[in-house]
């Protein structure tokens, strides 16, 4: 079920790369912003559901601010942009350490309790189920937006051909702003659920970011569908690795698949050669 959350992270990461060619290493730090905003909200006695909404809004705003306040001015230089997002990620991590300390914190679940799923013979937490449902609602809403509306379709179009988008009167600044907002909102949702289901610490973003990177490469850079399928593939491979090889080898099968994909299908399962000018 956590795979759907990883898909959210990977989709945000791949959309930002798709429309602007930016490898946003601060995307992981946005996950952390989401988790810590939720922590701060619930610590201040704000109800969990309201805290969750606040975390999503704050993370989306932070993502937009990162674009409008920094990336927008340097995005023509890929290397400088890449390095700047690394610096922002490290800076945000330090700020969180100063504010909250470096020890892991426990998040109050958005919804408490557990449920026994007879069909699969296992007991799961409601919050796991909620993470799955909310993630799929978000993915479904995004899919509708980018395939059925002019505004959303412009995002996909820009990821295929920037010049084509300009020729059809697409406002590239608006498309990029919307993309960073959506990616930020998705990172906020992911942050709350990963923080709840795994751990909330200033380093919590490293592993999801690495996984998102693997997912995007396997699924194909720029492909939303590829990100979703690859997220589930990675999820199953990690579970299989733990069951077959043991907990210490959790990432082994994923890495094997990653290497195989890079060798056999370098553009990924649903890779599309981007037509950036």
């Amino acid at each position: 079920m956590i795979s759907a959350v990883y898909a959210l992270i990977a989709i945000g990461f791949t959309m930002i790369f798709g429309v602007g060619g930016v490898l946003n290493l601060a995307h992981g730090a946005l996950i952390m912003i989401g988790a810590f905003t939720y922590l701060a909200a619930t610590s201040a006695a704000i109800p969990p559901f309201a805290g969750f909404l606040l975390a999503v809004v704050v993370t989306a705003a932070a993502s937009y601010a990162l674009y409008a306040g920094l990336v927008k001015y340097i995005e023509d230089n890929i290397v400088i942009t890449f390095l700047a997002t690394v610096v922002v990620a490290l800076l945000l991590t330090e700020l969180v350490i100063i504010q909250f300390g470096s020890a892991p914190s426990q998040l109050l679940p958005v919804i408490s309790g557990t449920i026994y799923l007879e069909a699969v013979g296992t007991r799961i937490r409601y919050v796991q189920l909620l993470a799955f449902v909310v993630s799929w609602i978000a993915i479904g809403a995004l899919w509708y937006y980018v395939t059925k509306t002019d505004e959303g379709r412009s995002i996909l179009a820009t990821s295929m051909s920037t010049r084509g988008a300009e020729l059809t009167g697409v406002d590239l600044q608006k498309v990029k702003s919307r993309t960073w907002l959506i990616a930020g909102a998705f990172a906020g949702i992911a942050g709350v659920f990963i923080g709840t289901l795994q751990s909330t610490s200033p380093q919590m973003w490293l592993s999801p970011l690495a996984l998102a990177f693997i997912i995007v490469v396997i699924g194909g850079i720029g492909s939303i569908k590829g990100s979703v399928i690859a997220a589930y593939l990675i999820g199953y491979l990690e579970t299989a690795s733990v069951e077959i090889l043991g907990p210490s080898f959790q990432g082994v099968l994923s890495l094997v698949v990653l290497v195989a994909i890079l060798l056999l299908k370098p553009n990924g399962l649903f890779g599309r050669e981007l037509v950036h000018e």
Binding site: L156, A157, M160, S161, R163, G164, L167, R272, V275
Partner: peptide
């Protein structure tokens, strides 16, 4: 409106 020599279509649309 400009139709470029490269056409600049959206290839996967």
């Amino acid at each position: 409106i400009y139709c470029t020599e490269d056409r600049d279509l959206f290839p996967f649309f």
